[in-house]
């Protein structure tokens, strides 16, 4: 036997296991006999036979598995199951992203809720607003850069009465519609974007005696974690879809359609 054949034959025989089981069960014996005949044929140059076998392996393995895959995809029940599993994987991946995202977003309000609650109590107790919220330059929080929570007080008309926050050197205030909602519901929690790229987790409390207290903080870090969650959810989704596809392929590979088994 030539060196080329000595190298190719074990590969060819081992690769026979990669044919769909139905095809293998039906033809492996005949393929083996045919190969034996080809090797015994002195008119066939061994190098030519070796290259034919390698090309045959690549082409027929691909073709038979693709044929099996087409047949699998044409089985309504199997396809339905795969689609249902893909839908379930999509829902799970969305939940994997949405639930922690909501928890992260709600948690982002916690320090502001505490600050607003304390400030409201002190203001209602008659402590002057200047003592509750320091407007001194050294106490100012640059909302674009700092992650620290800050307080702003407003009168009943929504005008700033004291502020511990600045953006580009100016005092900031949310849109007037926000106060209308807080006035009727006593509290409003929202994401406020005073300028593109600056998003603040904001809590506004309406004081019974009139006026509002707002606390907010930059969401940069929270949004970075949300983006990380989104990335993980996408990877999880792709992994689950790959598992569904692989499982469907393997099922079709191992359990061919009964109609074709008896064909």
């Amino acid at each position: 036997m030539s060196t080329a054949l000595r190298l190719v034959l074990p590969v060819y025989r081992a690769a026979a296991w990669l044919y769909p089981p139905r095809f293998r069960r039906r033809y492996a014996g005949q393929m083996h006999l045919t190969l034996r005949d080809a090797m015994a044929d002195q008119s066939l140059p061994p190098a030519s036979l070796a290259s034919t076998l390698l090309r045959d392996l690549a082409q027929s393995l691909w073709k038979e598995n693709l044929d099996m895959l087409k047949e699998t995809a044409s089985r309504p029940l199997l396809l339905f199951n795969a689609l249902m599993l893909a839908a379930l994987a999509t829902v799970l991946a969305l939940a994997f992203y949405a639930i922690p995202q909501q928890v992260l977003r709600q948690d982002a309000n916690d320090p502001q809720l505490e600050l607003v609650g304390n400030a409201a109590l002190r203001l209602q107790a008659g402590i002057p607003v200047a003592q509750v919220i320091s407007s001194s330059p050294e106490a100012q929080v640059n909302v674009a850069e700092s992650l620290s929570p800050f307080l702003i007080a407003f009168d009943e008309q929504g005008h700033v009465t004291a502020s511990a926050a600045q953006l580009n050197g100016s005092t900031i205030a949310p849109p007037p519609g926000v106060f209308d909602y807080a006035r009727t519901h006593s509290e409003e929690r929202l994401t406020w974007q005073p300028q593109p790229g600056v998003r603040l987790a904001t809590v506004i409390h309406h004081l019974p005696s009139g006026g509002f207290v707002l606390s907010a903080r930059n969401m940069r870090e929270i949004e970075a974690r949300e983006a990380q969650m989104g990335q993980m959810a996408r990877l999880l989704w792709l992994a689950m879809l790959a598992i569904v596809a692989l499982g469907t392929f393997l099922f079709g590979w191992l359990r061919p359609s009964p109609a074709r088994v008896h064909a």
């Binding site: 044919y19 039906r26 005949q30 045919t34 045959d56 027929s60 038979e64």
Partner: peptide
Amino acid sequence: IAMGPGTLYGTLNRLME
């Protein structure tokens, strides 16, 4: 054409079907 056993029996299988 130079056919190998895999191509041959794949072809025969489809022709029989």
